[in-house]
Amino acid sequence: MEVLWFSLQREYHSGTINKKDASLYKKWGKALKLLSDNPRHPSLQTHDIRELTERYGERVWQSYLENKTSGAMRMYWVYGPDSKSITIIGLEPHPEDKKSGAYARIVLSDLPPLDRI
């Protein structure tokens, strides 16, 4: 996720970014700011995803980058690796059909080693 973020940032600041990626960069940046200030900010509509939590063995949260649009992007994250950190582990379009195992198709980055005290 870090590589993607810095790639978008570099392209945005150099003026070589395409329209779709520029929109993603701006929305993701806004969501990251809100997340860092308050993970429960109302516009993020943060909630945990049981299916992903069970698969990864760590509580996985989903926050909105956008809503009410086809393919609305979602940011997936976990608390850690330490008690005051959040790690972004995925950026995916919202799975359209929850009944057909949609979250099984979500691919997330590897979880960081978590400090457990």
Rank of each mutant, 00 (worst) to 15 (best):
Y25P: 00
Y25L: 01
K27R: 15
W28Q: 00
G29L: 07
K30M: 14
K30C: 15
K30V: 15
A31C: 00
A31T: 00
L32A: 01
K33M: 15
K33Y: 10
L34Y: 04
L34R: 00
L35D: 02
L35I: 14
S36V: 08
S36L: 14
D37W: 12
N38G: 01
N38H: 11
R40H: 15
H41S: 14
P42D: 01
P42L: 10
P42S: 13
P42C: 15
S43E: 15
S43H: 12
L44M: 03
L44D: 07
T46D: 13
H47Y: 12
H47E: 13
D48L: 14
R50T: 14
L52S: 02
T53M: 07
E54F: 12
R55Q: 14
R55S: 14
R55I: 01
Y56V: 07
Y56H: 15
E58D: 04
R59D: 08
R59T: 13
R59C: 15
R59L: 13
V60T: 09
V60L: 06
V60H: 07
W61T: 12
W61F: 15
W61S: 07
Y64V: 07
Y64T: 06
L65Y: 05
E66T: 10
N67A: 08
K68S: 12
S70E: 06
S70T: 08
S70C: 07
M73L: 09
M73N: 05
R74M: 00
R74E: 00
M75T: 05
Y76G: 07
Y76T: 05
Y76P: 08
W77N: 04
V78S: 04
G80C: 06
P81S: 02
P81A: 03
P81Y: 01
S83R: 05
K84R: 04
I86H: 02
T87F: 07
T87I: 05
I88G: 06
I88H: 04
G90E: 02
L91S: 09
L91K: 02
E92I: 11
E92W: 06
P93Q: 04
H94V: 09
P95I: 01
E96R: 00
K98L: 14
K98Y: 10
K99P: 11
K99V: 12
K99Y: 12
S100M: 07
S100I: 04
G101T: 09
G101W: 04
G101M: 10
A102R: 06
A104F: 11
A104Y: 05
A104V: 14
A104D: 04
R105H: 08
R105I: 09
I106S: 11
I106F: 08
V107E: 10
V107W: 05
L108W: 04
L108G: 15
S109T: 12
D110T: 14
D110P: 11
D110N: 13
L111C: 11
L111K: 09
L111N: 06
L111V: 13
P112W: 02
P112E: 03
P112H: 03
P112M: 03
P113I: 15
L114E: 07
L114N: 10
D115Y: 10
